[in-house]
């Protein structure tokens, strides 16, 4: 047993982070918020980097890696707040022409919602009668659809990986702020009330990490449900605590913290919601 990232996995993680830092840094994020839209050039670049074809066999023009690597890539996407229907396009690689290379943008209904419907080239699943709504998350345009649909466990796990990225990022942002912002003559991070908020953020994120990575290895439905619950918790509570640590600044549109919280809320709607995962895990106890 060696439950640690391999050298190759570390390199992949660093590679995706570098690409996203360069192509979707602070300025690009700002611009995307001001003017929502899907950056097709970035999408193709992601395709060229293998983001969508990661799990396709090499014989089919893919990268030939597995779910653990996909989870690491999606964790980075979550961290960077990368917009777009990443999961649906990734899962369509190999079955929808052009999805693997990022030429074709694919979306799919999930949890009574469809994201990026107006931008997508292909919709997988039933999006008839979709009604647009004014999305709470400025980086995720949404439509409502009538039926809930079945949850795809892989989609649930990839969303959990994004949540993990968000949780980790929220902890970093909170710590950065707590070390630099001074009140009463010392960094606010020296106050124990603030310190303990940050410690709890890390504990939740690291517990979720163990669950998400393990689920990527086992692909067991109960492990995936567990990963989802812990990652949702780590992301939603983490971003809220991060906002609290930022004080008034955290409540502004300007500060990026709200974007992380809103995305975390949006993702937690996916795959039948929290209730379904809890029921899966309850059923597992008496199986």
């Amino acid at each position: 047993m060696r439950f640690q990232l391999t050298e190759d996995q570390r390199a992949l993680q660093a590679g995706v982070r570098e690409l996203l830092d360069r192509r979707f840094g602070a300025e690009a994020l700002r611009a995307a918020v001001d003017e929502p839209g899907l950056d097709r050039a970035l999408w193709r670049e992601l395709g060229a980097a293998g983001f969508f074809a990661l799990r396709l066999p090499e014989a089919d023009g893919g990268v030939g890696l597995g779910l653990p690597e996909a989870v690491l890539a999606f964790e980075e996407a979550g961290r960077a707040l990368l917009p777009g229907p990443l999961t649906a396009t990734h899962l369509a690689a190999g079955s929808v022409p052009g999805a693997a290379t990022g030429e074709t943008v694919v979306t799919a209904p999930d949890g009574g919602l469809v994201e990026w419907l107006a931008w997508a080239d292909v919709v997988l699943g039933d999006a008839d009668g979709a009604v647009p709504l004014r999305s709470l998350d400025p980086l995720t345009p949404l439509h409502r659809v009538a039926h809930q649909g079945e949850a795809d466990p892989l989609a649930v796990l990839l969303a959990a990986a994004e949540q993990l990225g968000t949780a980790t990022r929220a902890c970093e942002l909170a710590v950065q702020h707590a070390r630099t912002r001074e009140q009463f003559g010392q960094p606010v991070g020296a106050f124990q009330a603030v310190k303990h908020l940050c410690a709890d953020m890390l504990v939740r994120a690291e517990t979720a990490r163990a669950a998400v990575y393990a689920a990527a290895v086992t692909e067991d439905p109960a492990d995936i449900a567990a990963a989802r619950l812990l990652a949702d918790e780590a992301a939603v509570r983490g971003t809220r605590d991060c906002l609290q640590v930022h004080g008034g600044m955290g409540f502004t549109w300007e500060c990026e913290v709200h974007l992380h919280l809103k995305r975390a809320w949006a993702r937690s709607q996916r795959g039948g919601g929290i209730t379904e995962s809890e029921e899966v895990l309850a059923a597992d106890l008496v199986a």
């Binding site: 393990a214 449900a225 567990a226 619950l229 809890e278 597992d284």
Partner: peptide, 13 residues
């Protein structure tokens, strides 16, 4: 039931 389900997630993790 859901409380026990959540604890299942917790101890798996």
């Amino acid at each position: 039931r859901r409380r026990l389900g959540r604890l299942n997630a917790e101890f798996r993790a």
